[in-house]
Write a protein that binds this DNA or RNA. Structure first.
Lengths: 147, 147
DNA sequence: TTCCTATAGTGGTTAAAAGTAGTAAAAAGT
DNA sequence: ACTTTTTACTACTTTTAACCACTATAGGAA
């Protein structure tokens, strides 16, 4: 279970050090093998342990190819998906195309989301925080949710 | 399984170097023999391993000839299809008509899509990314999809 | 509280490999 | 037969990735 958020510095070569505690969970979960891809709804990245990715991939593949929304989802999730491993120092190298997609420069934000992580540029994260939810509808599943 | 995206420079002669990792998968899949053709829905190209192409070709051929949409699909997919092999340096030469169809100039984007690749001009790719989904319906398969 | 040690995080260097350009030879078309 | 375009091969330059070393920070012990 991935929880909590961390700020991380990416170096000039696009390498980012995974915080040690997360590194350890990843080592036990999936031998450090992760898949990183694009988030379809916001300009940030998704970081999956290999196992988790294997579960959702078939669901994405089976979406109908002649529906525009589904095609967009497939294209982004599969098209940006990249398997990565950590180097000897526990760092991952984020591929240039993904860096560009999520506007990653130096200051990053790694956010635990249960079975996966989200990786944001710090700027984008705070911009998103400040965005007001303007009249979007609350789904039925949330109407009876009590926290 | 083809995943991930790469930016590639096409030279003045219309040659593009296939990234080494992909080159290796293609070598094992289909001896480096690929078929490249037009995508019917967007102005980009489709790159199939020969095997995959052989599977879908009969399906395209058997579409009803008196339906306009089907005819368009046939005309584009079959009409632009070109078998290609890599040269000694792992490059392919993209035929001029296909370059024109997809507006390929210098900066290209090669995007893995499972059993095939898509090849975009970088400009077109980013334009497509920025396109807002304007009121297209979300297919039923996606309504309960949790990634 | 201060110093020492251990460990996480950062940056740089080097060797190998990948990408780019150019040239020469062959083929096709005029 | 000659010219022009194409293809294949070779050589060079740039980038990548792995490895190594250093710095800074945090924690523990004296």
């Amino acid at each position: 279970m991935f929880l909590g958020s961390h700020t991380i510095n990416m170096d000039a070569k696009g390498r980012m050090a995974i915080p040690t505690k997360i590194r350890e969970s990843l080592a036990s979960f999936c031998d450090g093998r992760i898949v990183i891809t694009a988030h379809t709804e916001e300009r940030c990245l998704l970081v999956y342990p290999e196992e988790q990715w294997k579960e959702i991939l078939p669901k994405i593949e089976s979406l109908p190819s002649f529906n525009k929304v589904a095609r967009r989802t497939q294209r982004l999730l599969i098209g940006y998906a990249t398997p990565l491993e950590m180097d000897g120092n526990g760092r991952i190298l984020v591929p240039p195309t993904l860096r560009e997609y999520a506007n990653l420069e130096k200051k990053l934000m790694l956010v635990g989301q249960g079975k996966k992580f989200e990786l944001w540029s710090e700027d984008s994260w705070f911009n998103w925080l400040d965005e007001a939810d303007q009249g979007d509808d609350i789904p039925d599943e949330m109407l009876s949710l009590s926290l």
